[in-house]
């Protein structure tokens, strides 16, 4: 029984993180049809900025609880600074090109940002552990749980709900949906498509940075964290259905639980299960668990 509880708790905690780091990827793909490899870099920049700013707040002797809003602020900052820049400066130029070109463009941006971060933050780890321990622990199922992992789940839920509200309940969301369905017709109807694209990509960048910022207190922010997160985020995105936010949430939950189970019972399999699940899903339901059927080109 305890083991089951552990699997649920660990699975949900990991799933929350997975959802946070992959939601932006899913969203960007949904709106812009871009599989953004540089998503991992935005995640890492979010982590670096979050760690740096939170570190400043903590060292200044201010109320340590200020660190949490600062993490959110850091994510918004990164998104606002880099989102429009990348979208207007680069991505916009290749929307009409083949998928492989956009993929490579984001790969190029990834490479540049990778060294760019090194030039700004160096290679020594940036460490801010305080926000992780600050919220205390809960004894559950025979082990102690940091409250922070519940905070992470909270942030993931809020981010997911915010996305849902924006897309399904606002005028802007309707515009996004129309752009998703047909860019040309939307433009003909007077929708400012370029603006929608910029805003959507900025939103995706913010989500990536948010994932990074809230990961920063748990890990050491070092070079190389971007590359590792990308494939994992891809896997989750594919499992849930490319471009489908609620699918992404279920995908994250599935991967999280599967991995937690693997660690409890077959620890040797934990990496393998994620990719195996991805392949199986692609084989059985290529559009993902919740993806729509792709329209074939005639």
């Amino acid at each position: 029984m305890d083991t089951l509880t552990l699997i649920l708790l660990d699975g949900i905690a990991f799933a929350s993180w997975l959802f946070l780091v992959s939601a932006g990827l899913t969203f960007a793909y949904g709106v812009l049809r871009i599989l953004n490899i540089a998503h991992g870099s935005l995640y890492a920049i979010g982590a670096y900025t979050g760690a740096t700013l939170a570190g400043l707040v903590l060292h200044s002797g201010a109320n340590p609880f200020l660190a949490y809003p600062v993490l959110v602020g850091a994510a918004l900052l990164v998104g606002l600074a880099l989102g429009p820049l990348l979208e207007r400066g680069f991505l916009r130029r290749v929307y009409d090109q083949e998928e492989v070109i956009t993929l490579l463009l984001t790969f190029a941006i990834f490479l540049i940002l990778e060294d760019g971060m090194k030039l700004v933050w160096g290679v020594s780890p940036i460490i801010v552990a305080e926000p992780y321990a600050l919220l205390g622990q809960l004894p559950l199922a025979g082990v102690t749980y940091p409250v922070y992992s519940f905070l992470l789940t909270g942030v993931a839920i809020v981010a997911g709900l915010a996305l849902w509200v924006v897309i399904d309940r606002t005028r802007f969301g309707k515009l996004i949906t129309s752009v998703i369905h047909d860019r040309e017709i939307s433009a003909a109807l007077g929708v400012n498509v370029p603006r929608i694209c910029t805003v959507a990509f900025t939103g995706a960048a913010m989500l990536a940075a948010l994932g990074g910022a809230f990961t920063a207190p748990m890990v050491s922010v070092t070079p190389g964290i971007s590359a590792d997160v990308i494939v994992l985020a891809f896997a989750v995105t594919v499992i849930g259905g490319l471009g489908n936010i609620s699918g992404g949430a279920i995908g994250a939950l599935l991967v999280g639980l599967l991995r937690a189970t693997a660690i409890q019972f077959f620890p040797a399999l934990d990496l393998f299960v994620v990719y195996a699940l991805m392949a199986v899903i692609l084989l059985v339901r290529p559009e993902g668990l919740f993806g729509g059927v792709e329209v074939r080109r005639i």
């Binding site: 490579l104 790969f107 190029a108 990834f110 490479l111 540049i112 060294d115 760019g116």
Partner: peptide
């Protein structure tokens, strides 16, 4: 120290 950036710029 920055070969990835050079490579990325060329690719870009």
């Amino acid at each position: 120290y920055t070969w990835q950036m050079s490579l990325g710029a060329i690719l870009l």
